[in-house]
Design a protein around this nucleic acid. Structure first.
Lengths: 335, 335
DNA sequence: ATGAAAGCGCTAACAG
DNA sequence: CTGTTAGCGCTTTCAT
């Protein structure tokens, strides 16, 4: 292990000067800087991040904590965030919670989050009370749909509005029996409940009744969940002329299920998803989807994080709750 | 900030005893343990990982470093690895290199990798010489297709064999003009070159000539890259009765491109991908793909990593190069 | 079964 | 412009 002290000795300076050179701090003579850099190269010195972190409290990394690593939505979000952060000299690191609020998360993850200068936390499945306990002073921006404690910045999608947009479009194009795949009526303000609310509001405004059997929960918001739900719907003999799937991944599964059933999209059944994942543009047929304003969300997240990371004890900062407007992107799965 | 010393004071013991309790080390009386745990709960103490890391050299985290965060293959690999590692009490953290071997990676990432107890590194775009410089003693398992320095464990796909399998299947089913999307002839042993080699070998064995115009590079191994390549192929007036796409993401793009062109799959054109991503099962039509032995790879990676993490100075360990056998998974995109 | 002392490698604060 | 001192919060080692 080569330490700064080793480099200092080799260059004939103090460890402090090495530190100053490595961190590009002002006031090091060009000559000294060169000698130090030579020594660094010669010895193959690499910074010990743990030591810097302990002493300076800074890691240079931002953590993005999501429920699952294999959902396109999160992968694409991570990419956008990583791009935005890199422009500001920060490095993105991705972790998963496993979407379960149990043990692992509460016990391990919360302590781990202090490894980062800032954290973007997707709160699917976490209770407000869990978040209350998050009492370290790392800047945190929450994303996702659950209600969150007052003190956190929160960036969320317009779930109700977006779902309403999608449903209204289907109704306007003549659909009268719109299956809601992944839908759920409940009193918790989670993603499925909110999008279901938008679905119902659109129906109410159009004066169309909702057949309760059309609202189908899915085992997960995955491709498999979408396909299985639509196959079950059909097996149960429930007729439908359109599907609003609660996520794009689910919608891709729905398209697959409809193909299994020999139903044509959009001729027999129209389909709309939510998220505007890149997959939507390449599905067969291409998938109409609700764009929740992904670029705006990214921009906002980075800005909020940066703001809190600037100010150390940022309790004075006003708390922001941002909801970019949703927008419908029309593609081949609707008429 | 609540430290161990604070907890120790509250519990009327020494910091050392707190440490022993927290780490579940033996030899703490049940009574003392209880008092310490009470104090921990009361004060809301959370371990400072940076300090532990600096002192003990252990983080409990394994890093997976991949070129891109928004490729299904890597997301799914990460999920499998995280599952495997969690069973052994380790935590997976995902980082991206951006697939460029420039600056950022060499300068920042290598030092950052010491943040982990072990590292799984996907080496797309890295040169052997870069890896040689990776001279910290963190256990590393390399994945990906580039040749790697002697001292690293390496888990790779059977690129040549898998590509040969796919191509041979297409030839056997009567295809005579198989477009190779993403293909490239070269002398570097990278993924495209190796898969192209398998494609050519299958042709040679079947005694079928390859029209050089059928070997098309793609801008990237993404959906967009696949679609664009197939559209260009058509625009150039090159006839083809099958497509072997170098990755599943590329193949999904190819399916989209063929739909744009009004070509039916598999009636007019058969398609095979590589990776056996979950997407293959849900594409329209479902996608025949080369399964590189993903579960076996995961298992091997975890085992190799664990082995080196057990042994501190593991230079004595024999180095392993693992290549699980590839297998063709037949689905609806082939006849 | 518990504690005291020392120090991991770095950098803030100050001195020269 | 450069160096000295001290200490971040934990754990290793050795005593008791």
């Amino acid at each position: 292990m080569v330490t700064m002290a080793d480099v200092a000795r080799a260059a004939g300076v103090s460890a402090m000067t090495v530190s100053n050179v490595i961190n590009g701090r002002a006031s090091v003579s060009a000559d000294t800087r060169l000698r130090v850099l030579d020594a660094v190269a010669e010895l193959g010195y690499q910074m010990n991040h743990a030591a810097r972190h302990l002493r300076a409290g800074r890691t240079g990394a931002v953590g993005l904590v999501v429920p699952e690593l294999d959902r396109p939505y999160y992968g694409q979000l991570a990419t956008r965030l990583a791009d935005g952060l890199e422009r500001r000299g920060l490095h993105l690191v991705l972790e998963r919670t496993g979407a379960s609020r149990e043990g692992e998360l509460a016990a391990v993850s919360f302590a781990r989050l202090r490894m980062y200068d800032g954290v973007v936390l997707s709160v699917v499945g976490l209770e407000v009370s869990d978040l209350e306990r998050l009492n370290f002073d790392t800047p945190v921006v929450l994303i996702g749909e659950r209600p969150v404690p007052e003190r956190f910045d929160h960036v969320m999608m317009d779930n109700v509005g977006g779902a309403k947009l999608a449903t209204a479009h289907l109704l306007a194009s003549g659909a009268r029996r719109i299956a809601l795949v992944g839908g759920r009526d409940g009193d918790t303000e989670d993603m499925p409940t909110l999008r279901t609310k938008g679905y119902r509001e659109a129906h109410a405004e159009a004066g169309v009744d909702v057949d309760q059997r059309l609202v189908r929960s899915a085992e997960s918001f995955s491709m498999r969940g979408g396909r299985d739900a639509v196959l079950r719907l059909h097996a149960d003999g429930v007729a439908f002329d359109a599907v609003f799937a609660l996520t794009d991944a689910t919608a891709i599964g729905v398209l697959r299920g409809l193909a299994d059933l020999g139903l044509r999209v959009p001729a027999d059944v129209q389909v709309i998803g939510f998220d505007d994942d890149e997959e939507a543009e390449f599905a067969v047929p291409t998938l109409t989807s609700v764009d929740p304003g992904n670029p705006a969300m990214t921009e906002t997240i980075v800005r909020l994080l940066e703001r809190r990371m600037m100010q150390a004890g940022s309790t004075t900062l006003e708390r922001t709750e941002a909801v970019p407007p949703a927008r419908l992107v029309l593609r081949g799965s609707t008429r």
